[in-house]
Amino acid sequence: MQFFLNITLGGIATGMIVAAVALGLVLIFRATNIVNFAQGAMAMMTTYIAYAVLHKGSGYWLAFVVALATGLLFGALTQVVLIRPLQGKSPLNAIIVTFGFLIFLEGLAGAIWGSQTRTFPAPFSEAGQKIGNTQIAFSPFDVFVVLAVLALMILMLVLFRGTDLGLRMRAVAFAPETARLLGVRVRPLLTLGWALSAAAGVLAALLVVPTSSLTPNFMDVILIYGFTAAVVGGLDSPVGALVGGLATGLSLAYVGGYLGGSLEPMAALALVIVSLMIRPEGLFARPAPRRV
């Protein structure tokens, strides 16, 4: 029973981090209709910068803020330099460009910082808590993870559902020409979408790095799982991303716990295939007629 409880709690903590990545992907997809494969690598670069700030002797929270700010800037720059020229081209081009950017950044990080593993601290204790006589696998840091990701999701919901800005961002993503005709200034909105998404990616990276350690490719697999979560939930839905993240985290935990750790990546693949077979647009996406 304790085993079940522990792997469930572990699955929830993992799921929340996966959800943060998925939220970042959803944010860009909603804003610019592109899946950003470089999101993890961009966050990885930013985490190295946070690491440098930490080792300059600054506290954790300063590094945290610096990382988020750098992430915003990095996202905006990426959109302006790499993505803007692709407007109106086949979506395949954007996939190849963001994927190439991922490879490039990982090589660059390896060239600058080397490939050795670095440890990155957590802001709160990672030790599980005792409730009565049983120790449960949920640490103060896990609480922070859950709260941070929930906050991110609520912010996104408010942005898209409750503000004029969010509405305009969605209009720009799905009908840029119409939006332009209606007088929406398209370019800055797209840039903003990328900046926010990159920041969400950075948050995920900062939440996962205390457990996984810092290397140039530490975000690879979490990006894959984040993608799984986004597909399960529907690339268009923040709530879907959260639910998809939890579903992914728990599936991985149960498959790992009861069937063997080496099957986890296959479990994620199976989850994607099954959910696409049942509901190709994702669980929470509103079905949209395909544009001709």
């Binding site: 997809f29 899946v35 494969f37 979506p91 996939i95 597909v231 696409l276």
Partner: peptide
């Protein structure tokens, strides 16, 4: 479509 297939 595109991104889903790429990820899969």
């Amino acid at each position: 479509r595109g991104p889903y297939l790429a990820g899969m």
